[in-house]
Amino acid sequence: MTTLQLKNIVKRYKTNTVLDNLSLDVADGETLVLFGPSGAGKTVLLRLVAGVIDPEEGQILIGGEDVADIDAEHRGIGMAFQNFALFPHMSAFDNIASPLTATKATKDAISAGVLKVAKLLKIDHVLTHHPKALSNGQKQRTALARALAGSPPLLLLDDPLRNVDAKLRFEMRLELPRLLAAQGATVVYVTQDYKEAMALGDRIAVMSQGRIRQIGTPEDIYNAPADIEIARLFGDPTINLLDVTPQSGPDGAYVELSNVKVTLPGMPASVLGKACVIGLRPEAIVFTEAAAPGAIPVTVEAETPLNEKTVTLVLTARGREILVSRPAGTPGPISGPAHIAVSGQTAFLFDKESGGLIRSAATPMTRNGEAA
């Protein structure tokens, strides 16, 4: 059983605290995605687990064993980092084969292991090439293949698809979960791409400024982001955030958009009259007829086709901007006056002062950001 436990980890560089009392558990066979902006401490965390650097404080346990005194090469870890770290004097084949060679596997086993991952990552045609003859995408895939080839019980993957072209990146989002599941490895995967995080992670740990802000399944984090900042990070186009003050009405708490009341079911009395922020996912807003109940008047400012969807920028009566997303080919206004429909069931409410979540959307969303 290969579990990973980080207990109260602190890492500093001079006076800069990069990881601040961070604790994290990764279950056996789980793929945990570390997600967050650049500088959050994700790569430093991986290097600590790998044994490349040491923490100032805290414990790192792999399979329940404290690895403080175990050198990197003896921790049973497969690694693929952003800088490739390929051996320049070795072919792509030999680079990928290096963990198998270290275990003294037979020649046939080495060849079979290399070809298996090379075909999956679509680099079997460049196995005879040296790193200097490979594109950045091919170097990235070679480094990933090397990490996978030895079937290590613990995999650390630092944004391994960053330099891969868009088509292959999409394909690998589908293939990698199957490959990792087949290997049965425990995986810590770093990315700044929220779609990749949602596609690959059994759970996602959202990091910021050396701390874990929220951890949960992709659906948990999309449907109930812990605060405004996390809500902004998950979604394309980004969530609409508007300052509001909930009021009490005959049907319960409500807020106003373009002087139209939007009822928010299940609101605690404590939010009434309080400065809040309403969060509306663009895909949860639809264009509607003027005569429809609850229709909110807006002005269409611009429309942007984005392949599978069309994103429209509209303005409320007070000039506040709202993004509306609809599937490509769906009819909608191009300019001028229009009306939108907003369901209070799909709205988030955040405390304006703290940014913390008060109420999550009652209508769950899938990993693709569409209503389930």
Rank of each mutant, 00 (worst) to 15 (best):
T17V: 15
T310K: 12
A199E: 01
P88R: 02
A185K: 00
V18Q: 04
L357Y: 06
T263E: 13
T245Y: 07
H130F: 09
R162F: 13
I228W: 02
S335N: 11
F84V: 06
A275C: 06
P131K: 03
S38M: 03
Y222P: 01
K104V: 10
D20Q: 14
V26L: 11
N83R: 08
L200Y: 04
S325W: 03
I340N: 03
D54F: 13
Q209R: 11
G216D: 02
N163H: 14
P88D: 00
I358K: 00
I221H: 02
A97L: 08
T15Q: 13
A109L: 10
M207N: 02
N136E: 11
F81M: 10
I70D: 00
D71K: 12
R169F: 12
A118C: 08
P268L: 02
A341S: 14
R178N: 10
V255S: 01
H130P: 00
Q183T: 06
M198E: 05
K352H: 11
T346N: 14
E256V: 15
G76L: 04
E171I: 07
L6C: 08
A85R: 03
K139G: 03
A72M: 15
V206M: 04
I62L: 14
G51T: 11
K139F: 10
L144I: 04
L6D: 02
Y13C: 03
A372C: 14
R12Y: 11
Q183Y: 09
I96K: 01
L24S: 05
